[in-house]
């Protein structure tokens, strides 16, 4: 396991800039989640660290050593691809054993068998070890490709939306399992997702990418509570942050154009009157959809609320975030 440092890394594909001067330190043993919409440069970052792509400019260090001219093999990284990149003509066992059979490692046969069995157990695919890779369901294939990374002990694990193709139950199981494995091994892990629950629950650090630029890097709490911009603020949080014109409530710092209100940052029973448009009972929480001067607002309320559409609720901001016209946070 090792610390990984990106130093002002840029990469373009023809006319398209995929990464634009990204600097980031992935501490040894950290679980770093990269967030961002499609095309923000998340996958490119993984491919640059793995050595499948070379950066146009900038430096990448693994364990203090510059690796930009190294092959993927020399970098000793493990990667889980977004699509199931299994070897289709091999069995599950052979797929899992493949990285261990590298001549660099010279792993003895019984050691290989033990590791494969162990990983298969964790990922619940032990009963499929003798199946061919093509005879698996999508979820099973993805578990095998996660397993193919986990059998190794690399300097860093790179995972590109590994859970996105799994069903909800398996996804939440594996989320816990992955976090447990990572913590147990003390592994350094860089994880790409656009699922904010994965980001909040697993990450020690979150990096937010916007069109090839790293706009904020910090703990999940920092990113959630102290976003640098409206863009970052809307990456995390469900229901999403409400963005309203600042004039709606008044009393704002100079230069503020937008007020950002997380659902839990709205006090009820005081302030301005709004109309209830919809009440969603989710069981563990109840979402209240409100309308104030044609603006839709989502907030949370008591699980056993008696409010109904058409009712009136007074609301006021509590710990709001203020952004200027460019979406930059000013308070």
């Amino acid at each position: 396991m090792a610390e990984v440092i990106l130093n002002n890394v840029s990469k373009a594909f023809g006319q398209d800039t995929a990464l634009d001067g990204v600097s980031m330190t992935i501490p040894d043993g950290a679980f770093v989640v990269l967030l961002g919409p499609t095309g923000a440069g998340k996958t490119t970052t993984l491919r640059l660290i793995s050595g499948l792509e070379k950066p146009d400019t900038g430096d990448i260090l693994i364990g203090g050593r510059s690796v930009v001219n190294d092959t993927p093999a020399q970098r000793d990284v493990a990667m889980v691809f977004q699509q199931y990149s299994l070897y289709p003509h091999l069995t599950v066992h052979e797929n899992l054993a493949f990285p261990l059979k590298s001549p660099i490692l010279r792993t003895p046969e019984d050691e290989i068998a033990r590791k494969v069995a162990e990983v298969a157990e964790v990922l619940q695919i032990s009963h499929k070890l003798n199946n061919k890779a093509t005879e698996l369901s999508g979820g099973e294939m993805q578990r095998v490709s996660i397993g193919r990374a986990l059998v190794r002990d690399p300097s860093i694990y790179l995972m590109d939306e590994p859970l996105s193709s799994l069903d909800a139950k398996l996804r939440s199981d594996l989320r816990v399992e992955l976090k447990r494995i990572q913590a147990g091994l003390g592994a350094t892990l860089l994880y790409v997702t656009h699922d904010q629950i994965e980001a909040m629950t697993m990450a020690t650090h979150v990096g937010v990418l916007d069109q090839g630029r790293l706009v904020q890097f910090g703990t999940p709490r920092e990113i959630y509570e102290n976003p640098v911009s409206l863009y970052v603020a809307s990456r995390l949080g469900l229901p999403r942050i409400n963005t309203l014109p600042v004039a709606l409530f008044g009393d704002a710092p100079a230069g503020a154009a937008t007020i950002g209100l997380r659902p839990e940052h709205i006090a009820q029973g005081q302030g301005r009157d709004s109309t209830v448009t919809r009440v969603e009972h989710l069981g563990d929480q109840t979402r209240l959809h409100l309308s104030l001067e044609q603006h839709d607002i989502v907030t949370l309320t008591d699980v056993h609320t008696t409010l109904r559409p058409g009712d009136t609720v007074a609301i006021a901001p509590r710990n709001p975030l203020y952004f200027d016209t460019n979406g930059t946070r000013i308070a």
């Binding site: 793995s50 499948l52 993927p72 093999a73 699509q83 990149s85 070897y87 289709p88 990285p99």
Partner: peptide, 13 residues
């Protein structure tokens, strides 16, 4: 291509 990429990452010569 991704099979070769996976193999390169798996350190197959």
């Amino acid at each position: 291509d991704y099979i070769y990429e996976a193999a390169a990452i798996d350190r197959a010569s």
